[in-house]
C-alpha cells in the first residue's frame, strides 16, 4: 500500500514535470514576449536598452535552457514575480487558490450529498413516479448550461428578490463570515447543480445494479429491514464505481469553477489565469496552470485510493 502510494506520487511528479515543460513552451510560444509589452508602454527605449533587457531577462537563451533555469528556481519555491500585480507570484496565487478551492469543495460536497439522496430514492423503484421526477431533474441539470443558470440566479435572487449579492466575495466594509457566506451561496448552488445531474444518474444506475445482486437477496434472507438492505448492504457496493467517477470529475469541476467565478465576478483561479494570459503575465499564468494540474492529479490519486479503500477486492500494489 505504502509502496503503491509512493509509486503513484512518483508518477504524478513525472506527469507534473512533463506538463510544466509543455505549459512553459506553450506560453513561451505566445505572440509578444514580456519585452514587447514593456516597450509598447515605453516607446523611447533604444535598441541597446532592449538588447540589454533581453539579456537581463535571459530571453536570448534557447527555450530548453530557460526552462531548466525556471525549473531550478521553481523547485525551491521561487516562482518569480507577477508582472501585472508587481507581487511575488505566490502571494497573488494563494488567495485565489483558496477562494476557488472553497467554492469547489463546498459545491462538490453539496452535489455529492444531493446526488446520493436523489440517486438512492430513484433506484428504490425504477420506473416509479419518484424515479421519473428525479430523472427529469437530473436531465435538466445536465442539459442547462452553467452560464445560463448563473444568469438566471442573478436575475431572480439578486436583482429581483435581493436575497443574495450578485457578485464578488464580500461587501466592502463588511466582510464578516455571514457576508462571505452569502456571497458564496449562488456560485455554490450554480456549480453544484451543474454536476448533481450527472452524479445522480451514476448513483441511480449503480444502485439499481447492486440491488439486483445476489448478496442483496441474501441480506433480505437474513431478515434485515429494507433500510438496512439498501443503506448498509447495497450502498457500500454501489459507492465503489460512483466514487471513482466523482473523484475524477473533481478535475472537471475546475472548469465549471472557472466559468462560475467569471459569472459571479469572484477573484479565483479562473479569473487570475485568464487575466494573466491576456496581460502576458508569464510567471503567474505558468504557475496558475501548474497548480490547476496539481489539483487534477491529486483528485485522480484520491480517486484511486478511495477505490482501493472501498473495495477490498482491489489490492493496490
Amino acid at each position: 500500500m505504502t509502496r503503491y502510494i509512493l509509486r503513484r506520487i512518483l508518477q504524478a511528479l513525472l506527469v507534473l514535470l512533463v506538463m510544466s515543460f509543455v505549459i512553459y513552451s506553450l506560453i513561451g510560444l505566445m505572440p509578444g514576449d514580456p519585452l514587447d509589452i514593456m516597450l509598447a508602454s515605453n516607446p523611447g527605449a533604444t535598441p541597446e536598452v532592449v538588447e540589454h533587457l533581453r539579456k537581463l531577462y535571459g530571453l536570448d537563451q534557447p527555450l530548453m535552457l530557460r526552462y531548466l533555469r525556471w525549473l531550478q528556481d521553481a523547485l525551491v519555491g521561487q516562482f518569480g514575480y507577477s508582472r501585472t500585480h508587481s507581487l511575488p507570484v505566490l502571494s497573488v496565487l494563494v488567495p485565489a487558490l483558496i477562494q476557488t478551492c472553497k467554492l469547489m469543495i463546498i459545491s462538490f460536497i453539496a452535489s455529492v450529498i444531493l446526488a446520493f439522496i436523489l440517486g438512492i430514492l430513484a433506484a428504490l423503484k425504477p420506473g416509479g413516479i419518484l424515479d421519473g421526477v428525479i430523472s427529469l431533474f437530473a436531465f435538466a441539470g445536465i442539459s442547462v448550461p452553467v452560464f445560463w443558470l448563473a444568469l438566471m440566479m442573478i436575475l431572480v435572487f439578486a436583482v429581483k428578490l435581493h436575497w443574495f449579492p450578485a457578485s464578488g466575495i464580500a461587501t466592502v466594509g463588511d466582510g464578516g463570515f455571514r457576508d462571505q457566506a452569502l456571497h458564496l451561496v449562488m456560485p455554490v448552488i450554480t456549480l453544484a447543480l451543474a454536476s448533481t445531474g450527472g452524479f445522480t444518474r451514476y448513483v441511480r444506475a449503480s444502485m439499481i445494479e447492486v440491488l439486483r445482486m445476489d448478496h442483496v437477496r441474501t441480506a433480505r434472507a437474513k431478515g434485515a429491514a429494507e433500510w438496512r438492505v439498501v443503506l448498509v448492504h447495497a450502498f457500500r457496493n454501489a459507492l465503489i464505481p460512483v466514487v471513482t467517477i466523482m473523484a475524477l470529475s473533481f478535475g472537471v469541476l475546475f472548469n465549471g469553477a472557472l466559468l462560475t467565478e467569471t459569472m459571479f465576478a469572484q477573484p479565483g483561479m479562473g479569473k487570475m489565469i485568464y487575466d494573466a494570459i491576456l496581460g502576458n503575465d508569464f510567471n503567474l499564468a505558468l504557475t496558475g496552470l501548474l497548480f490547476a494540474t496539481v489539483v487534477t492529479l491529486l483528485s485522480n490519486l484520491v480517486a484511486d485510493l478511495a477505490y482501493g479503500w472501498l473495495d477490498p477486492r482491489i489490492a493496490l500494489t
Binding site: 448478496h215 441474501t218 457496493n237
Partner: peptide, 8 residues
C-alpha cells in the same frame, strides 16, 4: 461468491 456481500 455472489451470495455474500463482497465488501463486508
Amino acid at each position: 461468491m455472489t451470495a455474500l456481500n463482497p465488501v463486508m
